[in-house]
C-alpha cells in the first residue's frame, strides 16, 4: 500500500518536473554546452568544420588587452546600472507605497518601460538625446544650463553614464515592482509598534522598512547583476560599443569577435569567461546571503 503511494508520488514528481526539465535541456542546457565546447575548437564562422585546439583560445583571450579593458567596463556598467536600479526602485517604491491621488496610474507608468521592447527604448533615447535634434539638448541650451549641445551617446566621457541611465530607466521598474510588492506585505503593526516607542519617519525607515527589504534588495542585486553583466542589446542598439571603445563591455567585445572577426571558437572562450565570472559571483553571493532559502510558511 505504502509502495503504491510512493510510486504514485514518484510518477507525480516526474510528470511535473519533466516538462520544465526537458524544455530547459533542449533549448538551454544542451545549446549552452555546445557553445561552451566550441571554446576548445578552432571554429571559423565561414567553415562548417572545426579543429580541436585545447586551451589555445583561452590563452589568446587572456593575453588581449582589450579583453581586460572590456571586463573593467562591464564591472562599471554592472555596478552603475544595478546601483541606479536599486536607487530608482527604492525611490519610487517608497513614494508610491503611500496613498496618493492617481497612484495606480503613476505605478503603471513607472512599470511600463519594463514591458516596452528594448529596441523602442534604445531608439527613443537616441532620439531625445541626439546632439542636433534632441529635445533634451534643446531644453538645456534654452535654459542656459549649457552653451554647447552635449553629445550624450557620442562623447567619450558622456557615453557610459548615458547608457547606464538609459538602462536604469528601462529596468528600474523591475526593482520598483519587487520593492513595492514587498513593502505592501510588511505588517503595519510593526510600524505602529515603532511609533509607539517614539520613532520618527527616519527611524521607522531604518528599523522597520530596510530590514524587511533586505532580502528583496539582495535578490534584485543578484538577478540584475547577472542580467546586466550580460546586457547586450541596448548597448548595441545605441552605441555599438563606441565612441572609440567607451561602451565596449564584455558581451559587445565577444560579439565582435564572433561577427567582426568571424571567430566562433574565441567568442565561445569569451562566453566561458563570462560564465565563470558569474558562477563565482553567484557562488560567493549564495554563500553569504542564500536567497534560495525556502519561504517560511507562517499562516
Amino acid at each position: 500500500m505504502a509502495n503504491t503511494n510512493q510510486a504514485r508520488e514518484g510518477a507525480w514528481i516526474s510528470a511535473a518536473i519533466a516538462p520544465s526539465l526537458i524544455l530547459l535541456l533542449i533549448v538551454a542546457y544542451l545549446p549552452i554546452l555546445y557553445a561552451l565546447s566550441l571554446a576548445f575548437y578552432d571554429k571559423s564562422a565561414f567553415r562548417p568544420d572545426m579543429e580541436w585546439v585545447g586551451l589555445a583560445n583561452a590563452e589568446w583571450l587572456l593575453a588581449q588587452k582589450d579583453f581586460w579593458a572590456a571586463m573593467g567596463r562591464s564591472v562599471v556598467f554592472t555596478l552603475g546600472t544595478v546601483g541606479f536600479q536599486l536607487a530608482f526602485g527604492l525611490f519610487f517604491g517608497l513614494l508610491l507605497n503611500q496613498a496618493i491621488a492617481g497612484r495606480s496610474v503613476m505605478r503603471s507608468l513607472v512599470i511600463l518601460p519594463y514591458l516596452l521592447p528594448t529596441i523602442v527604448i534604445g531608439l527613443v533615447f537616441r532620439w531625445i538625446l541626439n546632439p542636433e535634434f534632441g529635445v533634451v539638448n534643446q531644453l538645456l541650451l534654452s535654459s542656459g544650463l549649457i552653451d554647447r549641445p552635449i553629445n550624450f551617446f557620442g562623447g567619450i566621457d558622456a557615453a557610459m553614464p548615458s547608457i547606464i541611465i538609459t538602462t536604469g530607466w528601462q529596468y528600474g521598474s523591475f526593482a520598483v515592482l519587487l520593492i513595492l510588492a514587498r513593502l505592501q506585505s510588511i505588517n503595519p503593526r510593526l510600524y505602529e509598534a515603532a511609533r509607539s516607542c517614539g520613532a520618527g519617519t527616519w527611524r521607522c525607515f531604518v528599523d522597520v522598512t530596510l530590514p524587511n527589504l533586505r532580502t528583496t534588495l539582495l535578490l534584485i542585486a543578484l538577478l540584475r547583476g547577472i542580467w546586466m553583466f550580460n546586457k547586450f542589446d541596448l548597448i548595441w542598439i545605441i552605441t555599438q560599443g563606441g565612441p572609440l571603445q567607451a561602451t565596449e563591455t564584455l558581451p559587445i567585445y565577444i560579439y565582435e569577435i564572433a561577427f567582426r572577426d568571424f571567430d566562433f571558437g574565441r567568442a565561445a572562450a569569451g562566453c566561458v569567461a563570462i560564465f565563470i565570472i558569474l558562477l563565482l559571483f553567484s557562488f560567493i553571493y549564495f554563500k553569504f546571503f542564500n536567497p534560495t532559502k525556502e519561504v517560511e510558511v507562517n499562516r
Binding site: A28, Y29, P31, I32, Y255, A258, I274, F275, L279, S282
Partner: peptide
C-alpha cells in the same frame, strides 16, 4: 515533494542566465 536532485535543479535554473543570450542564439540557430 522531496526528491533527489531538487537543489541542483533549482540552482541550475539560474545558470541559464549566466550565458550571454546573444551567443546562446548561435547554437540555437544551428
Amino acid at each position: 515533494f522531496e526528491f533527489r536532485g531538487k537543489k541542483t535543479f533549482v540552482a541550475a535554473t539560474l545558470w541559464t542566465y549566466m550565458f550571454p543570450p546573444i551567443l546562446l542564439a548561435i547554437p540555437l540557430y544551428l
